[in-house]
């Protein structure tokens, strides 16, 4: 391993922070908007959809795609910051 132990720990902590941030959004759009609060959100019309229904069948999937790409972007930057990229 080319980096010091402390640096490895710091890298891992930042990595975990990125993961947690993304998982919070992941949980909010799918379990939050489309399951737990679906009935409340369904009262709101959204381009011809009840909003909760839209999150369940369309919106959450779009958000999932965006989440993976922002994760890829953040991790690539992090890898370079700690010089652990290949």
């Amino acid at each position: 391993m080319s980096i010091s132990n402390e640096q490895a720990q710091a890298y891992w902590r930042e990595n975990l922070r990125i993961i947690v941030t993304h998982l919070v959004i992941w949980f909010a759009v799918s379990y939050g908007c489309a399951i737990l609060f679906v009935d409340q959100l369904n009262e709101i019309p959204f381009f011809g959809f009840p909003l909760g229904f839209w999150f369940g069948q369309q919106g959450s999937i779009f958000v999932f795609v965006i989440l993976i790409w922002t994760y890829v972007y953040s991790m690539n930057k992090l890898d370079e910051k700690y010089d652990v990229h290949e």
Partner: peptide, 28 residues
Amino acid sequence: VSFIGRDGSAYLMGWTGGYVLLALLLAP
């Protein structure tokens, strides 16, 4: 989805949301 309507969301989200877990927690 056609026959069960909104409850079909579980399958739509379940079979795509798993990739977020794969990308963040497993694959690398």
